[in-house]
C-alpha cells in the first residue's frame, strides 16, 4: 500500500511536469499545425539557465546558512525571461519565413532548430558537455508522512520539493487556462487556431498572437525545466538522451491527450506519467520508455486524434 501511494505521488509530480511541457507543444500545434520539436530543448535550456543563475548568485552571495528562500523565485523568473525571449527569436527567425511552406518543411526546420539548440548548448563556451549538480535552492523537509500498517512498515513521504512542483505547476496551468478561456487575448488565440485567415480578416494580428503563443509556451517550458532540476538535481549535458526522452514523453502526452487541446495536454501528461511510473514499479523499470511509446501507438491506432481531440474529416 505504501509503495502504491509513493508511486502515485511520484507519478503526480512527474505528470505535472509532463503536462507543463505538453502545453507548449499543444499550443503551437493548435495554432500553426506543426510539431515544434525544439520545444523539448527549450526545457533543457530552462534547466541549465536555472543552474547557471543559481550558481552565479550563490557564488556572489556566499550565504552562510543555505540559499535564501527568495533565490528560487528569482532563478525561476530569470529562466522564464531568457526562454521567453528565445522562444520569440526561434519563431521569428526559423518558423515565420515558412508560414506558407508545406508542413513537412516546417517539421524538418523544427528538427534542425532542436539539433542546433542541443549542440550549441553542449559547447564548452555555453554549458559544456559534462553533467553538473543543481544546488538545492529549497530545503526538502517532509511535509506529510503517511504510514500504512503497523510500526516498522515503510511510510510515504511527501517533501517540500514535490509540493512546490504541484503548486507551481498548478498555478501556471491555472494562469494559462485563465488566459486562453477568459481574456480577449485568449479569444484571439482560439480564433487564430480555428482559422488564421478569417481571424486576420476580423482584425486580429495573427503574427502577434503566434509570437505570444511561442513566448507563453517557452515560459512554461522554462518553468518545467527549473522544476525538473529541483526534483532531479543531477543535470545531464544538453544533448543527453535523457533530455530528448523527456521532451518526447511530454510530446507524446500532448498527442495522447489530443494535440491542439489545452485540457488534453493536462490529461495526457498525467496518463503518461501514471503508465510510466506504475509500469516501472510493478512490471519492470527497464522498459519504462517502451510503455510510453506502446501506449502512444495503441491510442493513435484506436483514436488517431487523441483522447480529447475532435475527429476530423478531410475536405477536398
Amino acid at each position: 500500500m505504501a509503495d502504491f501511494v509513493q508511486t502515485l505521488e511520484t507519478a503526480l509530480a512527474v505528470g505535472s511536469l509532463y503536462a507543463l511541457i505538453a502545453l507548449g507543444y499543444t499550443m503551437v500545434y493548435g495554432i500553426l499545425k506543426f510539431i515544434n520539436f525544439a520545444h523539448g530543448d527549450v526545457v533543457v535550456l530552462g534547466a541549465w539557465i536555472s543552474y547557471t543563475v543559481a550558481q552565479w548568485c550563490l557564488k556572489r552571495l556566499a550565504p552562510a546558512d543555505g540559499p535564501p528562500l527568495w533565490l528560487g523565485p528569482v532563478v525561476l523568473a530569470c529562466a522564464m525571461t531568457v526562454c521567453g525571449v528565445l522562444g520569440f527569436l526561434i519563431e521569428r527567425l526559423a518558423y515565420k519565413p515558412l508560414r506558407r511552406a508545406p508542413r513537412l518543411n516546417v517539421l524538418i526546420t523544427a528538427i534542425g532548430v532542436s539539433l542546433l539548440l542541443q549542440n550549441v548548448g553542449q559547447l564548452d563556451a555555453v554549458f559544456g558537455s559534462s553533467p553538473v549538480s543543481m544546488p538545492a535552492l529549497l530545503p526538502n523537509p517532509a511535509l506529510v508522512r503517511m504510514s500504512f500498517g503497523g510500526p516498522g512498515s515503510s511510510e510515504v513521504v511527501i517533501g517540500l520539493v514535490d509540493a512546490t512542483i504541484f503548486v507551481t505547476a498548478g498555478l501556471l496551468m491555472l494562469a494559462l487556462e485563465t488566459i486562453v478561456y477568459r481574456t480577449r487575448l485568449g479569444a484571439a488565440m482560439r480564433a487564430v487556431s480555428f482559422n488564421a485567415e478569417t481571424a486576420a480578416l476580423m482584425g486580429i494580428n495573427a503574427n502577434r498572437i503566434i509570437s505570444f503563443t511561442f513566448v507563453t509556451g517557452s515560459v512554461l517550458a522554462a518553468a518545467a525545466g527549473f522544476l525538473y532540476a529541483m526534483k532531479y538535481p543531477g543535470l545531464n549535458q544538453p544533448a543527453h538522451t535523457i533530455w530528448v526522452l523527456l521532451g518526447l514523453k511530454a510530446f507524446v502526452s500532448a498527442v495522447i491527450g489530443g494535440i491542439g487541446n489545452v485540457r488534453g495536454a493536462l490529461l495526457g501528461g498525467f496518463v503518461i506519467a501514471f503508465v510510466e511510473q506504475f509500469g516501472a514499479f510493478y512490471i519492470s523499470s527497464n522498459y519504462r520508455d517502451v510503455y510510453v511509446f506502446a501506449l502512444l501507438i495503441i491510442i493513435l491506432l484506436i483514436r488517431p486524434t487523441g483522447i480529447l481531440g475532435t475527429p476530423y474529416r478531410e475536405k477536398v
Binding site: A94, P97, L98, A101, N105, V106, I108, T109, I111, G112, V113, S114, L115, L116, N119
Partner: peptide
C-alpha cells in the same frame, strides 16, 4: 543543424 535550417529557408 544549421544546414538543415538554411536549406529549408
Amino acid at each position: 543543424a544549421s544546414l538543415l535550417i538554411a536549406m529549408m529557408l
